[in-house]
Amino acid sequence: MLFSSLFSLRLWQWLLPVCVVLLGSGCASVEPRKASQPTFTTVYVVRHAEKDPAPSLLDPSLTAAGKQRAQTLVDTLRKAPITAIFSTATTRTRSTAEPLATARQLTVQPYDARQLRALAARIRREYKGQAVLVVGHSNTILETVEALGAPRPAPAVQDSEYDYLLEVRLPQDSTQAATAVARRYGVR
């Protein structure tokens, strides 16, 4: 009897700390998970909307159809969490960007279409994990995608095409490749 009592006592001396550790770990407070930052930066790239076709105009304005397309861009990107908008210095690009900038209470930031690598570096550096819009021209939007490190999602943009919406995803992990897809928006 004495032997079994000693055995039980030693068993409890060993089991008690184990039980305390196990019970304590089950009662430990669990920290809520922090909302994870997106694992990529999204860059939407569009050409300016329809412009006045008169060849004598150096800086043409948008046509009525162009103004409608600029408004359609607001609706198309309504769920996108745009935090910055970039445009070249022309009237047509600024006029395309302005309705979305007004809706989001953002300032349209100018960029030089001859310095696309600088724009890409700025977006990567200053807007990591965010979404931005870049408004350019038929001869710069595919080049913008390439400057961001993604392959062209379309072979070319014709002078008569105003409806491309290019979406570039820049992974935070620099070992992963950037991707781009081409969609259309508004009336063709």
Rank of each mutant, 00 (worst) to 15 (best):
S5A: 14
L6E: 03
L9A: 14
L11F: 14
Q13F: 14
Q13G: 12
W14H: 04
L15E: 07
L16R: 11
P17H: 07
P17L: 10
V20A: 15
V21F: 09
V21E: 02
S25G: 10
C27Y: 15
A28R: 15
A28F: 13
P32G: 07
K34A: 13
K34N: 07
K34E: 12
S36I: 10
Q37K: 13
P38R: 11
F40A: 13
T41N: 10
Y44Q: 04
V45P: 04
R47E: 00
A49G: 04
D52V: 06
D52N: 15
D52K: 09
P53F: 03
S56R: 07
S56I: 08
L58W: 02
P60M: 03
S61V: 05
A64W: 07
Q68E: 15
R69H: 06
R69D: 09
R69M: 07
A70I: 03
A70W: 00
Q71M: 07
Q71Y: 02
T72E: 10
T76S: 05
I85V: 11
F86L: 05
T93P: 05
T96W: 00
T96Y: 00
P99E: 04
Q105W: 04
T107Y: 06
V108R: 01
Q109F: 01
Q109E: 11
D112R: 02
R114V: 08
Q115E: 14
Q115D: 15
R117G: 15
A118W: 02
A120V: 04
A120R: 01
A121F: 09
R125I: 03
R125S: 15
Y127H: 15
Q130Y: 00
A131C: 14
A131P: 08
V132C: 00
L133S: 00
S138W: 07
I141P: 03
L142S: 02
T144H: 03
V145W: 00
V145I: 11
L148Y: 05
A150P: 08
P151F: 10
P151C: 03
A156T: 12
Q158Y: 12
E161H: 11
Y164F: 12
E167R: 15
V168F: 06
T175K: 13
Q176M: 09
A177M: 06
A178Y: 01
V181C: 05
A182E: 06
R183D: 12
R184G: 08
R184S: 14
R184D: 09
Y185S: 09
Y185V: 06
V187K: 10
V187L: 09
